[in-house]
């Protein structure tokens, strides 16, 4: 290693390296930081999607597995998590058996997460987890409820999950969602030949999720058809309509 080091100056070298470091920091602050913030809010929304699916699973345990009480701890970051009582929510599902004898509105209630930095809104409504973007039409269903049609007995089963609370509740940070099953009821309604079961969805205060519900109701598991009236769907070839209604009380978040 015999190199001639006559023209090498430590001072110039230091200034060059410092210049590179400072311009690097400058570039990251200018272009990198906004990307980082956006990515952070995307991550928050994605974490909340998972948390909502966990809560949906807890609700399924309450409704379908005879569990009386459930609680889940979750981290709400980059937004607010709120509970809306069914009577304040305004969203409902109207079900008929195709005649005037049976027509009923089922009020839903919701659990909603709104992102602070982004535009994502995630809602758990009637056992479905859905996402939409604020100021934009359209929505998507992340986790489906368990409505089904049994073709060998021509039975159509509708599950209604009604959310009630005593007070308005909203929170961010670490929260524990405590919920219990208040009561449940089963209705069996005969559907006469030639009549169609109709379902009509009306959105509530957490936003319009009609696109998500349309895709679910007209999908393979439920198999309903759109009618001429917007937001109304019908199912042909049903002889028995079963509506199971569950009232879930959110005690605390």
């Amino acid at each position: 290693m015999k190199i001639n080091e006559k023209a090498v100056s430590e001072a110039i070298g230091f200034v060059l390296i410092l210049g590179i470091v400072i311009s690097g920091i400058g570039l990251v602050t200018l272009y990198g930081y906004p990307v980082l913030v956006k990515e952070q809010s995307n991550t928050d929304v994605r974490n909340m999607e998972r948390a909502m699916i966990v809560i949906q699973n807890d609700m399924k345990s309450l409704c379908f597995k005879n569990v009386p009480y459930k609680e889940t701890a979750l981290q709400v970051s980059g937004g607010t998590f709120e509970v809306i009582n069914a009577s304040d929510y305004g969203g409902y599902i109207n079900v008929t058996n195709g005649t005037a004898d049976f027509q009923q509105d089922y009020y839903l209630g919701a659990l909603t997460y709104r992102s602070d930095r982004g535009t994502g809104v995630i809602t758990l409504e009637n056992g479905a987890v859905m996402i939409r973007q604020d100021w934009a039409a359209g929505s998507a269903m992340l986790a489906e409820p368990r409505w089904f049609y049994d073709d060998s007995t021509k039975t159509f089963v509708i599950y209604v999950m009604n959310i009630t609370t005593d007070t308005y509740m909203a929170k961010s940070g670490m929260t524990t969602v405590r919920m219990s099953l208040e009561d449940s009821s089963t209705q069996s309604i005969p559907v006469w030949p030639g009549d169609n079961v109709t379902v009509e969805y009306t959105g509530g205060s957490s936003g319009d999720y009609s696109t998500a519900w349309e895709n679910y109701l007209t999908g393979t598991s439920v198999g309903m058809d759109k009618t001429a009236i917007d937001g109304k769907y019908e199912r042909t070839d049903v002889s028995k309509l079963v509506i199971k209604e569950y009232r879930i009380k959110i005690r605390d978040i």
Binding site: C63, F64, N66, D150, S152, T153, T155, V157, T186
Partner: peptide, 10 residues
């Protein structure tokens, strides 16, 4: 079956 197990049975 329908009431307790949420199942349509035939």
């Amino acid at each position: 079956s329908l009431e307790r197990k949420n199942a349509v049975v035939h």
